[in-house]
Design a protein around this nucleic acid. Sequence first.
DNA 1: CGAGTACTTGAAAGATCTCAAATTAGGTGG
DNA 2: CCACCTAATTTGAGATCTTTCAAGTACTCG
Lengths: 242, 242
Amino acid sequence: MPIRSLADRVSDFLPVTAAERSALDRLGERERPVKRGTTVVRENEPTGDLFMLKSGMMIVYTLLDDGSRQILRLVFPGDLVGMAVLAYGKAAHSVMAVSDSVAAFIDRTLLAEVAYQHPRVAMALVALDQTERAALTDRLAAVGRTSARARIAATLLDIRNRLRRGDPSIHDSFSLGLTQEEIGDATGLTAVHVNRMLRQLEDQELITRMGGRVTIINEAELKRAANHVDRQEGVDLSWLPA
Amino acid sequence: MPIRSLADRVSDFLPVTAAERSALDRLGERERPVKRGTTVVRENEPTGDLFMLKSGMMIVYTLLDDGSRQILRLVFPGDLVGMAVLAYGKAAHSVMAVSDSVAAFIDRTLLAEVAYQHPRVAMALVALDQTERAALTDRLAAVGRTSARARIAATLLDIRNRLRRGDPSIHDSFSLGLTQEEIGDATGLTAVHVNRMLRQLEDQELITRMGGRVTIINEAELKRAANHVDRQEGVDLSWLPA
DNA sequence: CGAGTACTTGAAAGATCTCAAATTAGGTGG
DNA sequence: CCACCTAATTTGAGATCTTTCAAGTACTCG
């Protein structure tokens, strides 16, 4: 269970002064443990909070009229959730913990005050949010224009990469953390078809599986299968005025 | 061809002072006409500019390895494009004008300076960006979890609503502004199937068509067909500290 | 008026879903 | 630690939706 502070996350791409760091640390003070299966945020419910995930894993999703669910985003430690409360007075989407987690809640008023006092930090948070948006557009392109097999391959690689961000010791083997139904809801497929695609990737010897664990045994080929446009994740804020 | 300034757009949901308005107006000074069919921004090309569309219509899209295209966003007057340059040094996606347009380009350094001096304006721009993100998640949910018919219905309603934002005289009848191929690239369908779905909606007397014009003749039923979760677009920044 | 682009339609192939049932894995109370 | 109970996974068969391929028609622009 990796744990990262907001300041750590921001300092990955922006040198932060002591004052900025302490302001960021103050934002992350309100920590709360969340049990697996708990709905943390319900779509359309009024709220003034956003939060950063400290440890565990969550999903952001929306429910359609007919009861079907679209998972919009997988949330890993260090990710910021609910920036939309800056624009709306209510939650734009639902959020559920898929493993035991810890979240650090942030009041939007407090966030705004920090942003007013530390504009560079504000820009850093905007940049962080932009990386989420990029992930969202990648997912849309995958769901709209790639085969089921490619979507599953891409999802496996995505999960592996994001787990690795929090735990560099992870290489080819990792625990999925999602049910096949959840993977389906993230990729626009049924659970049954997710299962078939996983089996196919296994039969083709791109991965092996044991329990909930996946091991990538042919990463080059899996990447090719994923139709993966390798987004150079390089956030660059060096241009920011002082 | 409706034309809106950034200041007008922002003042829809945030009272702006004279100083703030003049700062926003300064941002929008660098106008440039763009001919239909012109690629304004190419994915991955280095740039420090974003822009606001003043008039016309554009699409934001990404191309996959196999040449297929996913349209991520339709751009109407008043929309801000390319906020990702705040995080990356290059364009996250390609942008093409689908009708003769005028764009007001904004250097990110200038934008950052305005944001530093006018934090409330900065928050307003962030809020504007959040509304775009909400539209993106709606599109993802539609592509991932709804039928071809529903996606087409939703797209028709979306285009009508957004055209109306710039021209309140528009009611049920409007020009699509997109080819069926483009609608397909936006909804994750083939042009052929888009055509069939339009025909079906016409046969079912939810719409009529003439040339590139669509008229909605049964809006209630079209909304139902769209599986539409009516997002109350109410941006609310009243909570913002002074 | 001609050329190219966009639209339209049919028929067949292919991908994915639905339904159903069997198997396995994980979690809990005794 | 076992036995049980439920949730998750797995597999097959058939139905459905969407794509592909092909060809003809209608527009639009120069």
